[in-house]
Write a protein that binds this DNA or RNA. Structure first.
Lengths: 246, 246
DNA sequence: GGCGACCCTTGATCCGCGTCAATTCCCCAT
DNA sequence: ATGGGGAATTGACGCGGATCAAGGGTCGCC
């Protein structure tokens, strides 16, 4: 009598239909019935302490992860040991899609604050999306959007100057925080200057200098990791100035 | 009697099971039976003349495309009109995956030489991959690999210096040509210096100068669009030199 | 077959950002 | 409270690659 009771509890606890992130996460746009069929999508949840990694590049791939709360960076390490930050992830975003192609993760996912993820065994994702057209469709959309996001970063890195890149970064962060119900104008950076720099293709000193400059220009206020955006229109203007880098 | 005969002919003509690219393309790894079920995946073929576009950013998305022969570039245009080359595609590679997420293409695909693609209506791709597990699996792998590829470019742009990037570009081209049965060491660039530069985040003059330098160093021979790779190990050494950019 | 439109090459100069270095700030652990 | 260490800031300087400019090669089109 006891074991099934616990199993039910676990199921409920990890049920997408009960999750307040369902409007952001994989089940977005599904109706109540459809949601219920998803309730065994998530096998367990897993807590990751700040500084620890969810998975490492090279590890075998078996599951996708949805961020419940917390903050992650993904990093890629090249043959010669250089490390590049390839993305930052927050609640409702999906991790691990890089592993599908080769059955091994290519990047490492590290928590930048104490975090929790929903573990979705990939076999289950595929099975459910075969049986279940709306999930299939949405899953494909999520994969595709990751491609589009990456191409956006390529454009950032390939054709914008340092100040434009940093402005774009701040605007993007602000938008994503807003979507999640946080303040659009005031937030705490979870990553270091070095990590921002790696992501944006510049050195930490440059990041720091640009923060100071944006502050002088009255567009933001920065104190260490605290950022307040005063003039988001100004930042948008900076990121769109057409006068090139290359 | 006549119409069905033509229909059969068309079917045969566009059948994956008859295509010599099936080992590179979507149906990779499927057995004969499985391949046959795919024979109505491709609705038609479409020829694109050099300089023409298969689709433009902003257009509604309806199908994926597999390159039969030819060569494409994909470009992204930012709000302020800057254009960034985000990739080059050759036979057997899949185009259009950027459109799935928003039902609109985000990038423009332009033929750099006279080309032909197989048109795969996306609804059909999804339907077949629901009914057909190996296709589903492989399709997911293709999407995931595109993500990984893009992350590789991010690393390139974010953490390598110009000469490393260009060396990496040449090595990558050579590899992909080899896979397709072409010479690994001698080929014709289908894109201009400007397009290479855009892709690699540098100016065309820099591309040109680096080509000349690689030639002086005895690693390649270049005459306009003709490239001969003499010392691929040397190029690999250049792309891996750890002494940073940022 | 010759003319024009690109494309490529190469040089000279300049500047954005990387590099190196010193100092300060902040958080955390004792 | 206090000391230690990582993170951030700021300045001085130099270099890689952008910018500007001129010339030459190649191919398609009349």
């Amino acid at each position: 009598m006891n074991v099934p009771a616990i199993a039910t509890l676990t199921r409920l606890r990890t049920a997408c239909s009960q999750c307040n992130l369902r409007e952001l996460c994989l089940p977005v746009g599904l109706n109540a019935d459809e949601l219920n069929s998803l309730d065994n999508l998530v096998s367990t949840r897993r807590k990751i302490r700040r500084g620890d990694s969810l998975f490492y590049g090279g590890e075998p791939f078996s599951a996708l992860y949805a961020v419940r709360f917390g903050f992650f960076k993904s990093t890629l390490t090249s043959g010669d040991g250089r490390e590049q930050v390839t993305g930052f992830y927050m609640a409702g975003e999906l991790l691990g899609m890089d592993g599908i192609g080769t059955d091994r993760h290519t990047c490492t996912l590290t928590a930048l604050e104490d975090s929790e993820v929903c573990v979705m065994p990939f076999a289950r994702v595929e099975e459910l999306s075969r049986r279940f057209e709306p999930l299939q469709r949405h899953f494909h959309k999520v994969l595709s959007r990751e491609i589009v996001r990456d191409q956006g970063v390529m454009m950032l890195l390939g054709s914008m100057r340092a100040e434009e890149r940093l402005a774009a970064f701040l605007v993007n962060l602000s938008q994503r925080l807003t979507t999640r119900g946080f303040s659009a104008s005031e937030f705490v950076l979870r990553m270091t200057r070095d990590e921002i720099g790696s992501y944006l293709g510049m050195k930490l000193e440059t990041v720091s200098r640009l923060f100071s400059r944006f502050q002088e220009d009255g567009m933001i206020e920065v104190h260490q990791k605290h950022v307040r955006i005063i003039d988001i229109a100004g930042l948008r203007r900076v990121m769109a100035q057409a006068h090139s880098a290359n």
